[in-house]
């Protein structure tokens, strides 16, 4: 059935999958076998096969989050063989293909682990902490209408490009999952950098970083110790420079803002 490679041999795999009925019940790793997996399949399509098998056997399919399956929505979030989104660099789980594995492999699949990301069920976790951090200040306060013309404030291309690079974060949470400290600094820094770089974001520059960091801490994420796992595992390549920028923004804001609280 293979598309590009008619000679690709189907694989048999052993899966060690984290199963947990709900947030309040302890889970465990359960072993499954899947057969005839085409190397052309995506990792999630392989899980689809497992789930169809389970369903036919009358068992509860494995719950996992996914949607666009083209690496941009940030829904998929599996910790595969000890790595966020598995072994391939710069790739979300949905874009990871089975040709990266070999026949007979044992694959361990776990949910993101962080206190701030409680497990909903099986491999699905609750990442609403990220939303609350954005709600704390990850925006520019403009109402609809009444804004200046798009070309009124020129933005140097270099700045626009850097802001864009930071803005490509998909909020999947791979950074938190991979970080020894379960720190969310790469995620927070991407948004802080984007809006601090653009002139449109300058009005709220100080309050934004103060509030977002406060919320980040409140959610119970760890503190960054500059290990760099986050950037190495980030599927869209958000750079550590953003964390440095976050630190700088925070220090300057705390030192110079009028906020006494």
């Amino acid at each position: 059935m293979a598309g590009s490679n008619p000679n690709a041999k189907p694989m048999n795999l052993t899966l060690n999958v984290w199963r947990q009925p709900n947030r309040n019940t302890e889970g465990r790793i359960v072993e499954y076998k899947v057969k005839d997996i085409s190397p052309e399949m995506s990792f999630l399509e392989m899980l689809d096969v497992l789930n169809e098998d389970l369903l036919h056997a009358g068992e509860d399919p494995v719950a996992f989050d996914h949607d666009c399956r083209e690496g941009i929505c940030g829904s998929c979030d599996l910790f595969i063989n000890g790595r966020s989104h598995g072994p391939e660099k710069g790739t979300t789980t949905c874009q990871l293909h089975m040709r990266k594995f070999s026949d007979g492999d044992t694959i361990t699949i776990e949910p993101w682990r962080a206190n701030a990301f409680p497990v909903n069920k099986d491999l699905s976790v609750d990442r609403s902490a990220f939303d609350r951090i954005i709600q704390a200040g990850g925006y520019i306060s403009v109402n609809t209408g009444g804004v200046p013309d798009g070309n009124e404030i020129p933005v140097p291309k270099e700045i626009a490009d850097r802001a864009f690079e930071a803005a490509t974060c998909i909020a999947c949470g791979a950074c938190v999952a991979a970080c020894k400290n379960a720190s969310a600094m790469l995620f927070v820094s991407a948004k802080v950098s984007q809006l601090a770089l653009l002139p449109q974001g300058h009005a709220e520059r100080k309050t934004r970083v103060e509030n977002m960091v406060a919320q980040m801490d409140k959610e119970g994420f760890g503190a960054c110790t500059n290990i760099g796992s986050c950037a190495a595992e980030c599927p869209v390549g958000i750079s550590l420079e953003n964390i440095a920028m976050l630190n700088r923004e925070f220090i300057v804001a705390k030192a110079t803002s009028n906020n006494l609280a």
């Binding site: 060690n16 984290w18 790793i29 910790f79 063989n81 000890g82 790595r83 072994p87 361990t108 776990e110 682990r113 962080a114 206190n115 701030a116 991979a178 020894k180 400290n181 379960a182 720190s183 119970g220 994420f221 760890g222 503190a223 110790t225 500059n226 290990i227 760099g228 796992s229 190495a232 595992e233």
Partner: peptide, 30 residues
């Protein structure tokens, strides 16, 4: 203080953890 906070932030640990593939040993073992 940081170590305590960071340990607590993880909560449940991983069954498999291959941090050596994404970071330096020294950075993780300060």
């Amino acid at each position: 203080a940081l170590t305590r906070r960071n340990k607590a932030a993880r909560g449940h640990g991983y069954a498999q953890w291959k941090a050596e593939q994404n970071s330096e040993w020294t950075s993780r073992n300060m």
